[in-house]
């Protein structure tokens, strides 16, 4: 059931509202329940906004909201938004509804970077070391994939996908190789990063991710109309005067950078980049000018919702967000696969 295009701005506003609601839900519920008004008061008082200044908040509430839940929620929103928008862009670039940011080696590169950082011991000396290694790993993997796929200034989509698979396997082997030489403690550290999560995320992570993610999403939104043309195929796009390689490479690198940033602050979180753009395309149609903001908002909503749900589903333990997104995302993905045989979205 696709919404009429005239209503797309209403739908985007609705998604924005839903994000606020999910955000409030995330701040409110957990091992310590904080009333919405108090949670809001913490935020407004900390930001010195002329709102809810009269509400008395306890030190405990302040600590829980400001230092624990808010940064995690914001990281969740940034990561979800980045994965959703990048997923939509990747699916557009490859004209393939099953494309995912992980497909061109981003996740494998990040994992190799992270494991090297742990093995070298830099991960324990600085909190930024592992994200930096993961980021470099992803960018190197994407560069290698593109380099392998490029022929005479052209990047055939199928070759790019196959090169991505090959690079992913190669880096997977490197990661496994390094893992076999690591001690128990380091293995635990790697596993903790591998199962993507938002726990122990702090304001530093928000600052780290905000620039590249928001910047990347803005660039993607600016290029959304061009992506509509790119989706029609290389020849068709060239025939209407688009410098295809330039745009394809540009979009590929922006989405790779955005995804790499999100992977490096939260570890691997699957299915957001795959499922959310699909869902949004089904609801709002294929126009990337609507699809990209909707996927960014949808990704943020889905991730924060999964994170909040993971916290309350079996207290006092927390189910990590990477597990929740896969648990909720994979049945939906399988349903899509079944349905797609007849679908017009292929």
């Amino acid at each position: 059931m696709m919404l009429k295009r005239e209503y797309s701005s209403v739908a985007l506003l609705f998604l924005l509202g839903l994000l606020v609601v999910v955000g409030c839900f995330s701040l409110t519920f957990g091992q310590i329940d904080v009333p919405v008004q108090d949670a809001m008061a913490v935020v407004t008082q900390k930001l010195q906004l002329p709102l809810l200044q009269e509400v008395q908040v306890t030190k405990e509430q302040l600590a829980v909201i400001w230092y624990i839940r808010l940064p995690r929620m914001l990281v969740g929103m940034l990561v979800g938004g980045a994965l959703g928008a990048s997923g939509a862009v990747m699916q557009g670039i490859f004209s393939n509804p099953l494309a995912d940011p992980g497909l061109i080696g981003i996740s494998a590169g990040a994992a190799t970077g992270a494991v090297l950082s742990i093995a070298l011991g830099t991960a324990t000396t600085s909190m930024f070391a592992m994200p930096a290694f993961a980021f470099c790993g992803s960018i190197c993997a994407v560069c290698l994939t593109v380099f392998l796929a490029m022929r005479n200034g052209k990047i055939p989509v199928m070759t790019l996908l196959l090169a991505g698979v090959a690079v992913g396997m190669l880096l997977g082997a490197v990661t496994s190789g390094v893992l076999t030489f690591m001690n128990e403690q380091k293995l635990q550290q790697y596993l903790f990063w591998m199962v993507g999560g938002l726990d122990y995320r702090r304001w530093e992570h928000v600052y780290l991710a905000a620039g590249p993610v928001l910047g990347g999403i803005c660039i993607m939104l600016l290029l959304a109309r061009h992506l509509n043309i790119l989706v029609l195929g290389e020849t068709e796009a060239k025939a209407v005067g688009m410098p295809v390689v330039k745009f394809r490479m540009g979009l590929l690198f922006v989405s790779a950078m955005t995804t790499a940033t999100s992977v490096c602050v939260s570890g691997n979180i699957g299915f957001v980049g795959l499922v959310i753009p699909h869902m949004m395309r089904m609801l709002l149609g294929p126009d990337h000018r609507v699809l990209l903001p909707a996927s960014a908002l949808g990704g943020a909503i889905f991730l924060v919702f999964c994170y909040s749900l993971g916290r309350i589903v079996m207290p006092p333990a927390e189910v990590r967000v990477g597990i929740m997104t896969a648990l909720l995302g994979s049945p939906y993905f399988l349903y899509l696969l079944r349905k797609m045989q007849k679908s017009v979205f292929l």
């Binding site: 004209s95 509509n228 043309i229 989706v231 029609l232 195929g233 068709e236 395309r281 294929p286 979205f345």
Partner: peptide, 15 residues
């Protein structure tokens, strides 16, 4: 020309 993703006739012509 293979057009996927549910693009409409008008989308194509506008290209």
């Amino acid at each position: 020309v293979e057009v996927g993703f549910g693009y409409t006739g008008k989308d194509i012509v506008m290209a």
